[in-house]
């Protein structure tokens, strides 16, 4: 069985408007792939489609995760199967503590009748929070409720660390972060890098990629990958802007 997240000829629409227009992409385990692209190119649509958001209609193509057809699975099944999406705008869940939320997510992964070991759970959570420089008080606070932008993003990374996915998609995790928060978040991600895990890092800016150094960089434009390269491509984009590529494309 192939150990990759494989996307072939993906077409997806929202409200009848096609956003992804035949996207091909392969993220093998052990690699970090970055997707860059201007606003409106379809970056967030891609992350939502992979996670299974119901507003997005997949009209053609195929996505497999380690050989499993992702499109056949419900949203929650995809997550339990090993896919993780770090949200660009994490939702607030008033009245539900962070700890209870994480427990419920972990509990959902256990066979029926089996209970989470509470002591071990807290120990692990505290260790991971320490790694992200998160205050312990966040365990008792309602999920993302009243969190600053940086705290929300850190909380997403904490969830990723707790759920230990096979493939993680980071949707503009850098947006709204100051440099210190960005470094902490990137460090969290880097600690998670492993031969057993693939990353798809979606970003608008090259800055994040100074801290999470990608193996491969893709440029998404108008619903398709128009260029793929190594980490130097990100620098080139930063210097020359997206017009450099998109004009070229229009000229052709």
């Amino acid at each position: 069985m192939s150990q990759t997240l494989n996307i072939q000829n993906l077409h997806a629409s929202v409200d009848g408007i096609e956003i992804l227009k035949g996207l091909d992409l392969e993220v093998p385990k052990g690699e970090v792939h970055a997707i860059m692209g201007p606003n409106g190119s379809g970056k967030s649509t891609l992350s939502k489609v992979l996670a299974g958001h119901e507003d997005y209609e997949v009209t053609d193509g195929r996505v497999t995760m380690d050989g499993t057809d992702l499109m056949e699975l419900e949203i929650d099944e995809r997550s339990r199967e090993g896919l993780f999406l770090a949200f660009q705008y994490p939702h607030e869940i008033p009245g539900v503590s962070n700890a209870n939320f994480l427990r419920a997510a972990l509990q959902a992964r256990l066979p029926e009748g089996e209970e989470i070991d509470a002591v071990g759970f807290y120990k692990e959570m505290y260790a991971k929070m320490d790694a992200l420089s998160m205050d312990r008080k966040f365990t008792g606070r309602a999920v993302n409720d009243g969190f600053s932008g940086g705290e929300k993003k850190r909380n997403e990374i904490l969830q990723m660390m707790m759920l230990e996915p096979s493939y993680a998609i980071l949707d503009e995790t850098d947006s709204g972060l100051d440099i210190d928060a960005l470094k902490i978040v990137a460090e969290g991600v880097n600690r998670m890098r492993s031969p057993e895990r693939g990353f798809l890092v979606i970003t608008h800016y090259q800055r994040l990629l100074d801290y999470i150094v990608p193996d491969v960089v893709h440029v998404l434009f108008d619903g398709r990958i128009i260029k793929t390269g190594d980490k130097e491509l990100a620098h080139e984009l930063e210097e020359k802007g997206y017009d450099w590529l998109t004009n070229e494309l229009v000229a052709v």
């Binding site: 996670a51 299974g52 958001h53 419900e74 949203i75 929650d76 997550s79 999406l85 939702h91 959902a108």
Partner: peptide, 16 residues
């Protein structure tokens, strides 16, 4: 959607 994306089934998500 947010809770489901963490592996929690929809019905349970509503309850939480």
């Amino acid at each position: 959607f947010y809770l489901q994306a963490r592996g929690i089934p929809a019905e349970q998500a509503r309850q939480i």
